Each structure stands twice: as C-alpha cells, then as structure tokens.
Amino acid sequence: MNRGLDISQIVSVLKSVLGKGNASIHLHEPKFAGKEWIYVKDCLDTGWVSSAGKYVEEFEEKLAHYTGVKHAVAAVNGTAALHICLMLVGIKQGDEVLLPALTFVATANAVYYCGATPHFIDSDFQSLGINPDKLHDYLEEIAFIRNGFCYNRLTLRPIKAVIAMHTFGHPVDLDQLLAVCQKYNLELIEDAAESLGSYYKKKHTGSYGRLSALSFNGNKIITTGGGGAILTNDSSLAKLAKHLTTTAKLTHPWAFVHDQVGYNYRLPNINAALGCAQLEQIENFIKNKRALAEKYQRAFAKIDGITFFEEPGYAQSNYWLNVLLLDKDYSELRDTLIASTHEQGILTRPSWTLMNKLPMFQSCPHMDLSAAESLEQRIINIPSSAVLGEDVW
C-alpha cells in the first residue's frame, strides 16, 4: 500500500548515498586532478593567456575527436556558441525558432539575440526534452509550407529551426525529431550544453544537428571556467564560425580589416588550457557520474512518492544533473523537500521556471505545455558532482 511521501525518509536516503559529513554538498562542483596546473602555468610562463595560443587549437581538435564531429570552434561561453549556431543557419529578425519551454534561459536568449522570436514547445516525459510526436501534431495544426519554407499560419512568420536541448544530459529522441524537421524544412540545432559525454544510439550528442553548442561553465561535465564550443561537420560553416567569433578580422601581419560585423567571442588560451586538462579526464568523470546515478537509482527504487529519473532506453546519458521526480500527487511538497535538504547541508534545486512564464517571453507563441508544466512542478535536482561517485565502483 502506498504510504505517501515521507520527506524525512527522502533526506535520509540522500544522506546514505552521499555519505554526508559536516560539510555542505553542492549541486555540481568541478574536480581538478589532472594537468590543469601544468597547462595553466605554461600559459602564465609564456605569456600566452589571451586570445591566441596553442591550447585553443589543441582543445578544438580534442573536442572534435571526442564528439566525433569534423570541427569544433571554441567560444567564450555556451550562449555565445548557440548565438553563432543560429546566425549560421540564417536565423534573423522576424523568424521563429522552436525550442523547449523547459530549458535554461540561455536557449531563448540566443534566439532573441538574432532578433527572432522563441516559440515554445512541450516536453517528453521519457527524455525531459522536446516531445517530437506532440511537436509534429502541433505543426500539422499551425504550420504550412510555401516556396519550401515553413510558416506559422497564426503569426505568418517563417519558422526556421528547432533547438533540441538535451535536458540535464539526457538526449532527446533525435531520429523522430529529425523526421519532423525534414517534413517541415526546419534546421536542427542541438543545445548540447549539458550533454558532453552523452550518446544517442551510440552516437555522441551534438553530431546530429547541422550545428551544435557546448558549454564549459564551472558546473558542467568539464570546465574551462567559462567557455563553450560550436560543433559541426560542415567545413565552410566551421570556417565562418571561427571568423565571426574572432571579430571577423581578415588575416594580415599588421592591418585591422574586418569584412563584416563580428563578435569578440574568442575563448582565451588560458581557459582552453584548463579545458585540455579536463578533457583528458572526461571518461573517468562520466564513469563516476554514472556510478553515482546507479547508486541513487537503487536507493530510491522502493521509496514511495518519488522516482529517480533514468536515461531513456535509446540513450547513454552523462547524468549531468541527477533528477528526483515527485509523483503528481505530491508536487506541492517540492519546496518543502528542497528546504529540508538545504537545512541538512544538501544543496538541491527545482528546475528552471518555464520560459513562457518569464516577463520578457510571455508574449511569445507556445503550444500546450501541460507536460512541461507538470515537470516544472515535480523536478528536484540533487547533488551530481563526479567526485561523489568515486567510492561507488
């Protein structure tokens, strides 16, 4: 018989998994156990700390190799990388871009930077990302094709692209989403900010869209302090991405000539040096994080009222941020549970506020968001640092 939600029991289970002592346990912390000091010191010793230096190119090459794409272009952060991705597929003022309502604000902000309108889509309970089936049915209702382009019959604006955001590191069902994109002539861009080390059907995320964006913020799988990257298999787009992110400056020994509006989105060499050292350890980070996720799964398997969210069957996730999902009957207890964990020094958090609820995006179009609204009220992120999984295996 279901006994309901016992908050004290949930806190106790978290403590048992985390082995909590007296120190607070943060949501996600970086670990520096490789050659970070050596590479960063090399930058300091040689003076190559800014926008040029060997580590930027080395980091790009290592990223491309790890993710299985032809090209990686480093950028100052993930938002900048996503902004350039959108520009390179031709997103401009007056366009609409489809993206999940349940996402970090950077996804919508990047669309707005282009002068385009975010158009918010519902989530899939299986992946926490865009629901391809529901998107297909929605486009059947509100979209039409004219001269090879998709238009919103309600706003008469062109719908140009879909951003697939891999929520908390769990891959979207990309095959189904690509089928929708093909039917409606939409570009697919992957917001893979959270999914470095995640695989969809044994192929790395970020390699399905025409362009994809990564993030290396301090709380990501690997960190460069701040940083991001653009992934693509299109050599011409990679070249243009590099040009645009380096202020569109033409190569010359001394002259400053810029052939279009560019962006100072370069990743400094000292940050790339940190990234090189981190990327050398990523397999161990992922192993530890998956071990931690498995321990959470076992611990919460028989707890009433709450479920540990597991990767979709088609995917191998990095479990960037682990998720506890409250049963619908107990969604109103989310904040009470979060407050209880904080009192015990276990720093949990809710999901993001849905994008359509934020004041700057309230007038943007959106479909029925019943699944996203349900998830928003029931998701609790719990500590997920790689170091927490070290003693599991």
Results as ranks from 00 to 15, higher is better:
residue 193 A to V: 11
residue 263 Y to N: 07
residue 287 K to S: 12
residue 211 L to W: 03
residue 288 N to V: 02
residue 236 S to A: 12
residue 245 T to C: 06
residue 192 A to V: 07
residue 239 K to S: 05
residue 260 Q to K: 14
residue 252 H to D: 13
residue 223 T to Q: 10
residue 258 H to Y: 15
residue 225 G to E: 15
residue 242 K to R: 04
residue 293 A to G: 13
residue 197 G to N: 07
residue 259 D to W: 09
residue 281 Q to P: 00
residue 214 L to C: 08
residue 230 I to V: 14
residue 260 Q to Y: 10
residue 210 R to I: 12
residue 193 A to S: 15
residue 280 E to R: 11
residue 275 G to S: 12
residue 248 A to V: 00
residue 191 D to G: 10
residue 239 K to M: 09
residue 222 I to G: 02
residue 274 L to E: 13
residue 199 Y to M: 11
residue 282 I to R: 08
residue 205 T to C: 15
residue 236 S to H: 14
residue 223 T to P: 03
residue 214 L to Y: 13
residue 283 E to K: 15
residue 287 K to T: 06
residue 270 I to D: 01
residue 237 L to R: 06
residue 195 S to K: 02
residue 282 I to E: 04
residue 210 R to S: 05
residue 280 E to N: 15
residue 235 S to N: 08
residue 230 I to W: 04
residue 200 Y to A: 04
residue 258 H to A: 14
residue 269 N to H: 05
residue 206 G to L: 03
residue 292 L to M: 02
residue 250 L to R: 15
residue 291 A to Y: 08
residue 285 F to W: 08
residue 274 L to D: 03
residue 223 T to S: 15
residue 229 A to Y: 07
residue 203 K to G: 07
residue 215 S to G: 07
residue 289 K to G: 02
residue 262 G to D: 07
residue 290 R to T: 02
residue 254 W to C: 10
residue 269 N to V: 00
residue 257 V to K: 15
residue 228 G to P: 13
residue 279 L to I: 04
residue 239 K to N: 07
residue 222 I to L: 14
residue 216 F to Y: 13
residue 236 S to C: 13
residue 289 K to W: 00
residue 287 K to D: 05
residue 274 L to Q: 15
residue 235 S to H: 07
residue 209 G to T: 00
residue 215 S to F: 00
residue 272 A to S: 10
residue 293 A to L: 05
residue 270 I to G: 02
residue 272 A to P: 00
residue 247 T to W: 01
residue 246 T to I: 04
residue 277 A to M: 09
residue 245 T to Y: 01
residue 233 N to V: 06
residue 288 N to A: 02
residue 255 A to K: 14
residue 235 S to F: 04
residue 250 L to G: 08
residue 280 E to Y: 06
residue 222 I to M: 09
residue 197 G to T: 09
residue 263 Y to Q: 04
residue 235 S to A: 14
residue 263 Y to H: 13
residue 216 F to K: 15
residue 210 R to H: 11
residue 241 A to R: 00
residue 278 Q to T: 03
residue 200 Y to F: 12
residue 276 C to W: 05
residue 239 K to W: 01
